[in-house]
Simulated scan of single mutants.
Amino acid sequence: MGKSTTAAMFRDRGCAVWDADAAVHRLYAAGGDAVPPLGAAFPEAIVDGAVSRDRLRAAIDADPTALRRIEEIVHPLVRADRDAFAAAARAPVVVFDVPLLFETGADAEMDATVVVSVPSDVQEARVLARGTMTRPQFEAIRAKQMPDAEKRARADHVIDTTSLESAAHGVQQVLDALLHRS
């Protein structure tokens, strides 16, 4: 959808940007706060003192209850990381880059929500061009997510990321609206 590029545009304009995916990577790394509890629940997922995402995915594939158990462990840790970032941030606007914002209910904790959006064929082409995912993997992930139309309907702001120019314009419009409101 252009989420990372748009987050960088907010950062370039002086916003503090917290990235949920980066937080999970920190939590899963050797010494990360998620390693002990995930290791207790899924010992096969720990490799060299870190959480192996591939092994965690295999556990999810093998056990229909695994994802819920993982989320019960990881979501509070991610929330604590986000809260610590927010408490330390000194920027006039703090942006939380959260892929599953609406799905996890975290939107209720935000002052405003922004969705970045492109047509589904553009999204698919971008993801597959990275070479890190197959079409069936992409389709499986997209099937688990809230439909883009529903996210757009729930958002306070929608940024079209079809081009860098439209994304930059959308970022500036959101900042103008937020700064004017405060």
Rank of each mutant, 00 (worst) to 15 (best):
D63S: 01
A62N: 02
K144W: 05
P147T: 13
L101T: 13
V94I: 15
A112H: 08
T162V: 12
D156L: 08
V74N: 00
R90L: 05
R13G: 02
R79P: 04
G31E: 14
L27M: 11
V171R: 04
D121V: 12
A168S: 15
P43C: 02
Q173A: 13
T132H: 08
A112T: 07
D107L: 05
A140G: 14
M133Y: 05
F138G: 09
G2E: 02
G131N: 10
A66F: 03
A34H: 09
T134I: 11
E124D: 13
V51I: 15
V114W: 11
A143V: 12
R135C: 11
V93C: 09
A149Y: 07
R13W: 10
A45D: 02
D81P: 02
A108L: 14
A84L: 05
D121R: 03
A59P: 05
S166K: 12
V118P: 02
T113V: 07
K151L: 05
A16R: 07
D33P: 04
S166H: 13
M146A: 07
E72P: 00
V47A: 04
V122L: 12
T134D: 11
V47G: 00
A30H: 09
I159F: 00
P119Q: 07
S182E: 11
R13C: 04
L27C: 10
L101C: 07
D148L: 13
V127R: 03
R154W: 14
H169Y: 04
A22Q: 11
D12V: 04
L27N: 06
A66E: 04
E71H: 11
E71C: 06
G14K: 08
A108G: 10
F10R: 04
V127T: 13
V51D: 04
K151G: 09
R26Y: 05
R130S: 11
V114I: 14
A86F: 07
L164N: 08
L175M: 13
V115A: 11
T6P: 05
G32L: 06
A20L: 03
V174H: 02
L38Q: 00
G170C: 10
L179C: 09
R57L: 00
D148S: 10
V114Q: 07
H75I: 01
E103S: 13
A112M: 08
V24F: 03
A91G: 06
P36V: 00
Q145M: 14
I46H: 00
A84M: 02
L67H: 01
Q123R: 12
P64E: 15
Y28D: 01
A140N: 11
A34G: 10
R126I: 15
A58T: 12
G14W: 06
L56F: 01
S166W: 03
P92Y: 01
L101Q: 03
V115E: 04
A22S: 11
A45C: 14
V98T: 13
M1Y: 04
S120P: 06
E124V: 06
F102D: 05
T113E: 14
H25W: 07
R90Y: 06
T113C: 10
A29S: 15
R152C: 14
R69F: 06
V122M: 08
K151Q: 10
P43L: 01
L175G: 05
R126Y: 03
F85N: 02
Q145G: 12
S120Q: 12
I60W: 04
D160N: 12
K144S: 15
A88Y: 00
G2L: 05
T132N: 07
L101Y: 08
E124T: 14
F96I: 12
T5P: 02
M1K: 01
